[in-house]
Design a protein around this nucleic acid. Sequence first.
DNA 1: TTTTATACATAAGAAAGTTATGTGTTAATT
DNA 2: AATTAACACATAACTTTCTTATGTATAAAA
Lengths: 129, 129
Amino acid sequence: MYKTCILKILMYICPMYSSELIKGTLKTIVLNLLRDKGRMYGYEITAKVKELTEGKIQITEGALYPTLHSLEKNGELETEKEFIGKRVRKYYSLTSQGQETASQKVNELADFMNTMKFLLDLEPKLGNA
Amino acid sequence: MYKTCILKILMYICPMYSSELIKGTLKTIVLNLLRDKGRMYGYEITAKVKELTEGKIQITEGALYPTLHSLEKNGELETEKEFIGKRVRKYYSLTSQGQETASQKVNELADFMNTMKFLLDLEPKLGNA
DNA sequence: TTTTATACATAAGAAAGTTATGTGTTAATT
DNA sequence: AATTAACACATAACTTTCTTATGTATAAAA
């Protein structure tokens, strides 16, 4: 199979961010999307993120599903199953706790990105006066 | 000892970013600082980052030193030892390869942050037209 | 009919941190 | 004078969080 080779070519044409960068932002991305869309199922989340970022951020299923499960276990998300024909879909939505966490996480990330921009000299000044 | 308690109070007064966020940006921070300052030693790097970010980003030594060693091993950094009295300092500076890597990493992070801002609806539009 | 897309799940391994510990010097405090 | 804090390095055990690989199964397309 030429899968490996094809993937390399694709990566050259359509570069993705190195995975370290995505680490730590996954929960925030998921919570924010769910806040925006109301309810989504796992596969839909991966597709939406890929679409919105033009393929630059691709959430793998091995990363997404454990994250969803842990968020649910932690009381941030609740689920309902739906059958499309014989195929199961698991829809996730935010609990009220999840709403709060989503806001917190997004604010923290926004703040962090401002700090990073300042630290990396990407902005002339830290507009703080 | 009241260390734990004091730390909690400090965290409340002066909040730090959750560690997941810092993960993946450490190399970029270090490379960019060294590009800016020419040469620095480890302890100085932690102090400078803390100062520039008003305590919001605090690089631990357990994270920094392994990172410096791996960057050196990888040919991005070179070192010279200096003695201040009887105390050793290890100064790090970028190799020419390190210069290139620094630029790449900073560009990638800047790009990533733009994408994230768009994804999290923090900007009205992705100015792309 | 075989591949691709949809849709879930989990397990082994790697990466990159945290936390804890260790060594030793120098300055400040009590 | 003695102890604590700051300086300055290093490493090792552990945790978290992802990647990669694998597994199951349905539906649509080639």
